[in-house]
Amino acid sequence: MSKSIFEVQLTDLLPENLKRDPDIIAASKAVDSGFSVLVNDINKTLILPRIDHLESDVLDHVAYYFHVDFYDRSLDIETKRKLIKDSVYIHQIKGTPRAVEILIETLFDEGTVEEWFKYGGTPYRFRVVTSNKSVTQERAEEFVRALNTVKNTRSTLDGVVILRSENMDLYWGGIVHQGIKEEYRQVR
C-alpha cells in the first residue's frame, strides 16, 4: 500500500538492517518531526491556485511579482484577486480594445468601449461607457490611471461616460375640445 507525502515516515524507508538500530530510529523520528512541518507548509508555496485564500498583504507582493501595472494597494481584496488572475492574459493582449474591456469589467463590473467611428469622434480616439451606479468620479480617475497601462499608445481616451437612469413617476394628461364656431351678423 502506498502512502502520500503527508503520511510517510523515514523509518518506513529504511532498509531492514537499519530499522533495528535504536540510534537510527531516534534520528529518523527527529527528522520526521521537522519533515512534517515542512510538508505542511508546502501548500503555502502554491500561489496561483490559492489566490482566493491569500491575504491582502500577500496579494500586494504577488501583484508586484506578476507586474500588475494598474494595481493599487487601496483596492478592495476581491478586485485585487481579479486583477492578479487576469494579469498574465492582459499582458498578452496589451494594446487591444479587449484589454481595455477586461479592465472595465474588473474596475466597473460593466461597461463598453466605443471607438471613434461609433460615436462620430476623431480617429484613434475612444470613450468608455458604463451604467454602473457605484462608479464615482474617484473610480473614473482610478480607471484612467490604470487605462494608460493597457491601451494602445496612439489611442486617446475622450472620456468616461457614466450613464445614469432614474425611475420617476410620469404623469400626463390630455384634453379633447370639440366645438363649432358660429358667427352671427345683424342684417338691416
Rank of each mutant, 00 (worst) to 15 (best):
L83Y: 00
P123M: 11
G120R: 06
E7R: 03
D32G: 00
N40G: 14
G120A: 07
K80I: 04
V58S: 06
L18V: 02
P15Y: 02
D109F: 07
F117W: 15
V100W: 00
D69L: 10
T106A: 11
L54K: 12
F6Y: 15
I24S: 07
H53S: 15
I5P: 00
E78C: 04
Y119N: 03
D12Q: 12
F126Q: 02
N40D: 15
Y89M: 11
V88A: 13
D52K: 14
T136K: 12
G111M: 01
K44A: 15
P22M: 10
D12C: 01
N43R: 13
E78R: 06
L14I: 04
W116D: 06
V31M: 03
V39F: 05
S131H: 12
R127F: 09
I93G: 03
A26R: 11
L107F: 05
D69W: 05
V31T: 07
H67V: 08
V68H: 00
E101I: 10
D12K: 01
T96V: 05
F108P: 02
S131V: 03
V129Y: 12
P22W: 11
N43H: 15
P49M: 04
I42D: 07
D109W: 03
L54V: 09
P22R: 13
A140M: 10
V31Y: 06
R73G: 09
T106C: 05
E7H: 07
V100C: 08
L103I: 05
I77L: 04
F126Y: 15
T45F: 14
D32Q: 00
T11K: 15
P97H: 04
G120Q: 06
R20V: 15
L107E: 00
R139A: 11
R98V: 09
S87L: 00
S134Y: 13
G120V: 12
R125C: 13
V62G: 03
E7M: 05
V62Q: 05
N17L: 07
D60G: 03
I84A: 01
K133R: 13
L48C: 03
H61V: 07
